[in-house]
Measured scan of single mutants.
Amino acid sequence: KELVLVLYDYQEKSPREVTVKKGDILTLLNSTNKDWWKVEVDDSQGFIPAAYLKKL
């Protein structure tokens, strides 16, 4: 599985998104959309702007 590093805090703005903190390491589930990547946070899944993430 691929991991990503969160570069900036992000507060979810819709139920399909997730809240993350700078420095979090998350599992990347889908990066086919260049603007929004799907990640797994704890036991939930959701989208975060790709610009907030860096592949490890």
Rank of each mutant, 00 (worst) to 15 (best):
K1Q: 11
K1Y: 12
K1T: 11
E2C: 15
E2V: 13
E2K: 09
L3H: 08
L3I: 07
L3M: 12
L3D: 02
L3P: 03
V4K: 00
L5Q: 08
L5N: 01
L5Y: 09
L5K: 06
L5A: 04
V6A: 06
V6I: 04
V6K: 00
L7G: 00
L7V: 06
L7F: 03
L7D: 00
Y8Q: 14
Y8D: 09
Y8P: 00
Y8S: 09
D9C: 05
Y10S: 01
Q11C: 12
Q11K: 12
Q11T: 14
E12N: 11
E12W: 15
E12G: 15
E12V: 15
K13A: 11
S14C: 11
S14R: 09
S14F: 09
S14Q: 08
S14G: 13
S14E: 08
S14P: 06
P15V: 08
P15L: 08
R16Q: 12
R16W: 15
E17A: 09
E17L: 08
V18G: 03
V18M: 13
T19L: 05
T19Q: 06
V20Y: 07
V20C: 07
K21I: 06
K22W: 04
K22N: 04
G23Q: 02
G23H: 04
G23W: 05
D24A: 12
D24W: 15
D24F: 07
D24C: 07
I25A: 02
I25L: 06
L26R: 02
L26S: 01
L26N: 00
T27F: 10
T27L: 13
L28M: 03
L28D: 00
L29C: 06
N30V: 07
S31V: 06
S31L: 03
T32I: 09
N33E: 10
N33A: 07
N33H: 11
N33I: 05
N33Y: 07
K34C: 12
K34Q: 11
K34S: 12
K34P: 14
D35N: 14
D35W: 15
D35A: 10
D35G: 08
D35Q: 11
W36A: 03
W36S: 03
W36I: 05
W36T: 03
W36V: 04
W36L: 05
W36Y: 09
W37A: 02
W37Q: 00
W37V: 02
W37N: 00
W37F: 04
W37P: 00
W37C: 03
K38A: 10
K38P: 01
K38I: 14
V39P: 00
E40S: 10
E40T: 07
E40N: 06
V41W: 08
V41N: 12
D43H: 12
D43T: 11
D43I: 07
S44R: 15
Q45F: 13
Q45I: 14
Q45S: 13
G46T: 12
F47L: 08
F47A: 03
F47P: 01
I48Y: 02
I48V: 15
P49W: 05
A50D: 04
A51Y: 13
A51W: 13
Y52D: 04
Y52P: 01
Y52S: 08
Y52C: 14
L53P: 02
L53R: 00
K54E: 14
K54Q: 14
K54G: 05
K54S: 09
K55L: 13
K55V: 12
L56G: 02
L56F: 08
L56W: 06
L56Q: 04
